[in-house]
Amino acid sequence: MSVLLFLFLGALLQKFGLVAVLFLVTLGIAAYSTYGERKVAAFLQDRVGPDRAGPFGLLQPIADGVKMFMKEDFIPQGSEKWLFILAPGIFIFVALMTGAVIPWGTTLTLFGANIDLQVTDINIGILYILGFTSLGVYGIMIGGWASNNKYSLYGAIRASSQMISYELAMGLSVIAVVMLTGTLSLRTMAEMQSGFNWTVIYQPLGFLIFFICALAECNRAPFDLPECETELVGGFHTEYSSMKLGFYLFAEYINMFISSAVIATVYFGGYNFPFVDPAWLGGLMGPVVLFAKIFFFIFVFMWIRWTLPRFRYDQLMHLGWKVLIPLAILNMLLTGAGVLWFES
């Protein structure tokens, strides 16, 4: 009995440890994404970027964090106080929750113990991610509405309609992958793509649709209409200051990180790489490969932001409803036909 309890506690401790590590890594990557974003923007524009705080400006995120904490925390008059405070919390909470189902690697052997590098392998992992990304919009909507500011409300409304429009195409492109792999579990999907058997080879159109939708879901340029500075003075977070604004900005980078992780896992083989066994280095090779892919996609996200201009609102809706959804349905049909053809 006591042995069982000990094992149970050990497993629990392992999971807690993994969650804590994942949490810290996510926050760290989000913090350094802000730095990376500014550096990438600078390099793309022939500038230097932040280089004052520490060597190459590496301490810039810490300086930014200190600044965020030191700023005056302001709650505007006429706002819904509790919702105003709650909204950034919801946003960052939802953003952090999605990391739980992503398989970061196979198993890690540490001090003789085998640690499963995935918080939970629920058999509907991809749906879980879709569900939580669809909830992220509440943080924006509640925050925008509670601010009692018309620009914030505009931002919130834009965010919600954009999210609904692009979620559909995203889900449809994912369905094609599910038909191909026959599973909803991200772990199984990653396992099936060993070597160079990546899904993107079979699903180039689906990947393109998913990528565009991921950009839109993260409110990244060229789909950053909810927070566009030129029209909406910052959109839904116009009235936010101090660490509440910090939460919003942070959560956006977390979303970007998670989106990159999902893209890498679903379409680009996850922790697999040709001629590289994810079990090398005591299982550390898997996370290394996956993070390399994730960083590449984060870079692509930034690269796109600093290249393409923002969409106009009607163009956004046109692209979402009249281009991406029909394309996604076509992709689904083609995949279904292909699966039928090769199965029989």
């Binding site: 793309l44 524009q45 022939d46 500038r47 230097v48 280089d51 690269w303 796109i304 600093w306 290249t307």
Partner: peptide
Amino acid sequence: IVGGMWTTLKHFFRKPATVK
């Protein structure tokens, strides 16, 4: 879009014009 991305990528490897 690819053309535009290529243009910015070329700038990525260019020497910065900044004078500190």
